[in-house]
Amino acid sequence: VLLLKIHATKNCSGVSLKTQELYAIVFVTRYLDLLFSFISLYNTIMKLIFIGSSACIIWYIRFHRVVSQTYDREQDTFRVIFLILPCLLLGIFINHEFTITEILWTFSIYLEAVAILPQLVLLQRTKNVDTLTGNYVFLLGGYRALYLLNWIYRFLTEPGYRQWIVWISGTIQTAIYCDFFYYYFQSWRRNEKLSLPS
């Protein structure tokens, strides 16, 4: 959705490069297993799509002659090191297995939980949020919220299925969106443009 929006409108105002870069880190550190394990064709294709689309978005915002001019550089100032470092430490200390790939995988789970924060802060600073950007954040949060249902379903149907690190991180991730969801639905109900209160 976001890549299509940027490609079609040649405009990325209100889009956080920081969040996109965090997602690129998340996808690359988590999908290292592309090199040594195979789950399913769907799983492999989606991993490649996630890595590829976030790389494309970053390229557009950083380097595209027209799009890069519309980037809200002065507003997108979230200090991502304050997210990356704690997640790395957490990954080193709370994991299932003390190996490089497992620590990076765990780090990616923690980082994904908070990766949307720079985007939410930028949305809050943006007076009139572009409809497509609002929809993108809604779909991203909604996609992750559906995992909660999937986890309950798998827990009930697959004996021994449990993954506490993923469950807790995913629940926090979805909780971070709650405020956004509230204002998204309110603006949708009133047929108004989305704007988050500061």
Partner: peptide, 10 residues
Amino acid sequence: GNTKPPHDEL
């Protein structure tokens, strides 16, 4: 429980 669950989700 330190058993590593399979990483079969995205």
